[in-house]
């Protein structure tokens, strides 16, 4: 396992996803591969399994990919995108149970230091306990 964990930000709103990536860039920097995706396949609010799959591929890292999601369908569509990956890749992708914006920044901060996928997710998920 090597490299920096990639991040995928999944929101119902493309603007929220892009804005979250902007915040990661400014607060953490450009070292962490970070992709925004949002909007349903027709361009309205929602999420899109195909777009999530493409986002996972775009930040792919041997260290793995952490996904931050907002509500309901975003998580279910992210789970679906992960299940459609091949067996080996699937083991390297996880959904963080954390608030989207705060979780993304904590995950990126952890990832930028070379942390493992488990450490990145744990860091994001710790926000709720704080």
């Amino acid at each position: 396992m090597s490299g920096i964990v990639g991040l995928v930000i999944v929101s119902h709103s493309p603007e929220v996803a892009r804005g979250t990536v902007d915040m990661v860039r400014q607060m953490v920097g450009d070292d962490v591969p970070c992709a925004a995706c949002g909007g349903n396949p027709a361009g309205g609010l929602g999420t899109d399994v195909g777009q999530i799959q493409a986002a996972i591929r775009s930040v792919w890292s041997a260290a793995g990919v952490a996904i931050l999601v907002d509500l309901g369908g975003a998580e279910m569509n992210a789970e679906m995108a992960i299940e459609l990956l091949d067996d080996a890749s699937r083991q390297l992708v996880r959904i963080c149970q954390a608030p989207l914006v705060e979780g993304a920044i904590l995950a990126a901060a952890e990832a930028s230091g070379g942390a493992s996928l488990a450490e990145v997710c744990a860091s994001a998920e710790a926000w709720q306990a704080a």
């Binding site: 909007g39 309205g44 399994v49 279910m76």
Partner: peptide, 14 residues
């Protein structure tokens, strides 16, 4: 349905 719906009902009905 999974690929086109864009909400939770896509993965569920899919």
């Amino acid at each position: 349905l999974v690929m086109k719906v864009g909400g939770a009902s896509g993965p569920l009905y899919g």
